[in-house]
Every structure is written in structure tokens, then in C-alpha cells.
Write a protein that binds this DNA or RNA. Structure first.
Length: 265
DNA sequence: ATGGTTGGGGTCCAA
């Protein structure tokens, strides 16, 4: 069987529910991982997704900030989440689908100043990444075939941003963040699915700021949203799509959904 | 070097 898994920072699931439903209707991934749902669990908009056939759902939200959820139309079992940095933030949730553990992450954005001495949020981001590295590198994370998706808030490669030179000191593309993300990737030898399919010298973005009159023409994007798989799934990788057009829908999120397709073994 | 927009909750914070 094939399995399609999508990830999307939705920037308020309640405001964007119709947008998510449209995406599900048009593209129908088996599994959709959402970040920045900004919705407490008690008021998560379950009914619409239930009606669309996504009858399996795990959600972890809080009021106003953060929030992650996984919707699935195929059987899914919850997996214990981990509270990175011990703050009680809703930035990680996990579930098992078809024998594969799916980790859905919302990594802290890190504020504006890339210096942990001057900006606590940047320190939080680096600490969060270090804990991800240690958690996956140690014995506590679930073993076996795994997929890690989410808004990792870092664009690691030169062509993951519109201008490598101009963004070297901008949070999301600084060398210290890129190094920290690479350490997470190396912790389980994760495969970056986007770059498995797209040559390193080709620009690839999943996010465009709201603060631009014409985001598409300016095209000052960054690839902040990622899909990684453990090496045992590499042979099943059969497709990858970045749905840039969705960024142009009415009342859009500033992130576009990205999707991986796994083929039969 | 600056300002630009959006969302949530409530008159400001995070992205």
C-alpha cells in the first residue's frame, strides 16, 4: 500500500478549518500533521475533519500559542509525547500509522536576535534542538521506522532561502541553528526527503512572510517545513510535493503544505 | 537600517 503524509503550519486551525478541509478534499493525504493550531483541545474543530473521513485524530493544543495535531483517515495509535524543555508547551505529538512512528514538531521560532545572551527565545530554540538531538540519539525515543515532520523553523541549506548571503544573520538561517539542526538530523541518520527529490542547487521554499505585498512575485521564501524519514524507509520514498499554490488561497497560512508519498516495500 | 502583515486575546505578544 502507499501512504501519504502531509505537514502544514496552519496558523490557527479554527480560523483555517475551511482551508484545511479544501486541502483534504483536493489532495486527500492519508495523514495530515498540523502545527500552530492555537486551539485548546476542548474547542478543537473535530466535527469537520470527522465528516471529511479523518476519523482518527490526536491533538495537543493550548490557548493562543503553539499547538500540534495529527489527523488520519487510516488507523492510527497515539504514542506518548515528550515535553521538550519541560515547559508544558504543545510542540510535539506522535502517533503510529502502519507500523511507522510519526513525530510532529513545532520548533520554537527563536525571536529576532540570534544571540542567546540577548534573546531568551533564541536560547530556547537552541535548547529545544539539543534536546531533540539527545532524545533521538538516546534510548528514550521510540525505535523502528519513523517519520519526523513539522515546522522546524530552520532553513538549513543555501538554496532553502531566497538569499543565503542576506540571511546568514537572520534567525532561521544562522550557522549555529543550521549546525544544531544537522545534529538532530544526524542523531538517527534522518533522510531529508525534500533534498532526496530536489537537487541541492534548486531553490525550495515552504514559507513566505505575510509582510510582503506580492509574496509570489517577490518570492523571498524559506524552507522551514520538513519531512525526514529513518534510513529503513528510504527505499519506500516515491514522491514529494510542496503545494505552493495553497499559499495563494484566500486567507492563507503563511506556510504551504508539503507531502511525502511512501510506496510499497 | 527599517518596516512590512497576520492571529489571538484583549489594548500587546508572538510569528
Amino acid at each position: 500500500m502507499t501512504l501519504t503524509i502531509a505537514t502544514w503550519n496552519i496558523n490557527s486551525v479554527r480560523l483555517r478549518e475551511p482551508t484545511v478541509l479544501r486541502f483534504l478534499a483536493e489532495h486527500g493525504p492519508d495523514v495530515l500533521c498540523l502545527q500552530e493550531t492555537k486551539s485548546p483541545d476542548a474547542v478543537f474543530p473535530h466535527d469537520g475533519f470527522e465528516g471529511a473521513g479523518y476519523v482518527h485524530r490526536v491533538v495537543r493544543g493550548e490557548k493562543g500559542y503553539n499547538g500540534v495535531a495529527i489527523l488520519s483517515r487510516v488507523p492510527m495509535l497515539p504514542v506518548a509525547h515528550h515535553d521538550f524543555c519541560g515547559r508544558g508547551d504543545c510542540r510535539h505529538i506522535a502517533a503510529q500509522v502502519d507500523g511507522i512512528t510519526v513525530h510532529n514538531f513545532y520548533v520554537p521560532a527563536g525571536g529576532d536576535v540570534p544571540d542567546r545572551e540577548k534573546n531568551e527565545k533564541f536560547g530556547h530554540k537552541l535548547d529545544f534542538l539539543a534536546e531533540m538531538r539527545d532524545w533521538f540519539g538516546g534510548g528514550d525515543a521510540p525505535a523502528g521506522p519513523s517519520i519526523l515532520v513539522g515546522d522546524l523553523n530552520i532553513a538549513p541549506q543555501e538554496h532553502d532561502v531566497w538569499s543565503h548571503k542576506q540571511l546568514l544573520k537572520v534567525v532561521s538561517h544562522t550557522p549555529i541553528e543550521v549546525e544544531a539542526l544537522e545534529a538532530v538530523r544526524a542523531s538517527r541518520d534522518w533522510v531529508d526527503v525534500a533534498r532526496h527529490f530536489i537537487p541541492l542547487e534548486e531553490k525550495a521554499y515552504s514559507w513566505w512572510s505575510y509582510r510582503s505585498k506580492d509574496w509570489s512575485a517577490a518570492d523571498k521564501g524559506r524552507r522551514l517545513d520538513h519531512i525526514w524519514v529513518t534510513p529503513d524507509l528510504r527505499e519506500r520514498l516515491s514522491g514529494y510535493d510542496m503545494h505552493r499554490d495553497v499559499r495563494g488561497w484566500e486567507k492563507p497560512s503563511d506556510h504551504a503544505p508539503v507531502v511525502v508519498t511512501l510506496g510499497t516495500t
